[in-house]
C-alpha cells in the first residue's frame, strides 16, 4: 500500500519556487530519510504532506486523501519539528494527557518511561525547556503517538550526542515492535543512514534521487591517481566531484556503472578505487559546482592573474 503519493507537488512563495514539481511515492512501513541542503524544500514538502501547508499545484495524496485540513490525515499522522507550538497553559504531563485523548494508538507506558529516562519533570512548561529538552519532549510525543505516518523534521536539533544516540535507538526498537511509515529529515546522514531503508534526496525543489540506502552506497565510486589516466577512464562518465591532489594527481567521484572486469583493470592500471560514503555523495550531488568551495578561491585566483 502506498501511504504517500505526490505528483508534481509545487509550492510558490511570491515569485520563488520552494517546490518545483516533486513526484514520488512512499510505501507503507518504510523508514525514509529526507536529505537536502538548506533551502532545498524539505520542510515545505513535509508540511504539505502533514496537511499544514497547501500546495500551489500538483496532486498530493496521504492515505489516498488530500492532506490539507483533513481529519483522517491529522488523526493518523504526527509531524514533529523544532517549531512545534504546544498550548502554553498546559504543563508537560497535561500535554501528554491531551495527546492520549487525540491519538488512537497512544502508548502512555512508553511515554512515561521515556519521560522518566530523559529526566523531564511533569510540572514544567514547554516554553521554559532548553532547545535540546524541547526536542527530546517532542520526540517522546512523536514516538508515543504510534501514528501510521510519523514525520520527524530535523528532530535532533539541540540534542547532545548521547540523547541523539538514544533517540535513534528507541526509534528503531519501537519501529521493529510496531512497524509504521516514518519520514526522517536530517542534515547528518551519517548518523541516520543505518536506520533508513530508502533515501529521498531533494535538490532545488525537485526529487534528485529516490532509492534504497544500500544502493546509494554503490551508486558512485571514487578514483584517485594520475590525472591523464583518470581522464582516460572517466571521459564518458558523469563526474560529480573533482579535486586536484598536487600537480599531477586527481580524485574524482563518478557514477559507478563500471563492470567488475573494468574495475579490476582500473586497479591494475595503478589507480586507487574508493567507495564514497552516502553523506559525501549527497553533498557532491547537491553542490552547484564540481569543485565545491575550492572553486570560489580558484576563480578569484584566475581572475587576478588573467
Amino acid at each position: 500500500m502506498k501511504v504517500i503519493e505526490s505528483k508534481e507537488m509545487t509550492k510558490v512563495y511570491g515569485k520563488t519556487y520552494a517546490l518545483n514539481g516533486i513526484t514520488f511515492e512512499i510505501e507503507e512501513n518504510k523508514i525514509t530519510g529526507i536529505i537536502g541542503r538548506n533551502g532545498a524544500g524539505k520542510t515545505t514538502m513535509l508540511k504539505i504532506i502533514a496537511g499544514l501547508f497547501k500546495e500551489t499545484s500538483g496532486e498530493v495524496r496521504v492515505f489516498s486523501e488530500k492532506p490539507f485540513n483533513n481529519l483522517t490525515v491529522s488523526a493518523n499522522m504526527i509531524f514533529i519539528d523544532d517549531g512545534m507550538i504546544l498550548p502554553a497553559s498546559l504543563n508537560l504531563k497535561e500535554i501528554l494527557d491531551e495527546a492520549e485523548r487525540f491519538y488512537e494508538n497512544w502508548d502512555s507506558s512508553l511515554a512515561n518511561r521515556l519521560f522518566d529516562y530523559f529526566s523531564l519533570s511533569p510540572n514544567q512548561y514547554h516554553s521554559n525547556l532548553s532547545k535540546g529538552m524541547k526536542s527530546t519532549f517532542n520526540m517522546i510525543l512523536g514516538l508515543s503517538a504510534k501514528c501510521p505516518l510519523t514525520i520527524f523534521d530535523e528532530p535532533t536539533t539541540g540534542m547532545d550526542a548521547g540523547v541523539r544516540h538514544d533517540f535513534y535507538r528507541v526509534m528503531l526498537k519501537d519501529y521493529l515492535a510496531y512497524p509504521r511509515t516514518i519520514l526522517l529529515s536530517s542534515h547528518h546522514l551519517e548518523e541516520i543512514e543505518d536506520l533508513l531503508e530508502d533515501i529521498l534526496l531533494i535538490k532545488d525543489g525537485r526529487v534528485h534521487l529516490h532509492l534504497p540506502v544500500a544502493d546509494l552506497k554503490e551508486w558512485a565510486i571514487g578514483l584517485s591517481g594520475k590525472k591523464d589516466l583518470i581522464n582516460e577512464w572517466v571521459k564518458t562518465k558523469k563526474v560529480f566531484h573533482e579535486k586536484s591532489i598536487g600537480h599531477n594527481n586527481l580524485y574524482v567521484v563518478v557514477k559507478n556503472d563500471f563492470t567488475i572486469r573494468e574495475l579490476e583493470n582500473i586497479t591494475l592500471s595503478g589507480l586507487d578505487v574508493f567507495p564514497v560514503s552516502s553523506s559525501d555523495l549527497c553533498m557532491y550531488l547537491t553542490q552547484k559546482t564540481k569543485g565545491g568551495i575550492d572553486d570560489v578561491y580558484n576563480k578569484a585566483k584566475s581572475d587576478k592573474y588573467s
Binding site: K30, Y168, L172, L176, D194, L195, E197, V213, A214
Partner: peptide
C-alpha cells in the same frame, strides 16, 4: 528483526 535490533540497523538491510 533480531539482526536489526543487535546492530541497530534497518531490518531491510539485515534482510539483504
Amino acid at each position: 528483526y533480531q539482526l536489526a535490533e543487535i546492530f541497530n540497523i534497518n531490518p531491510a538491510t539485515a534482510a539483504k
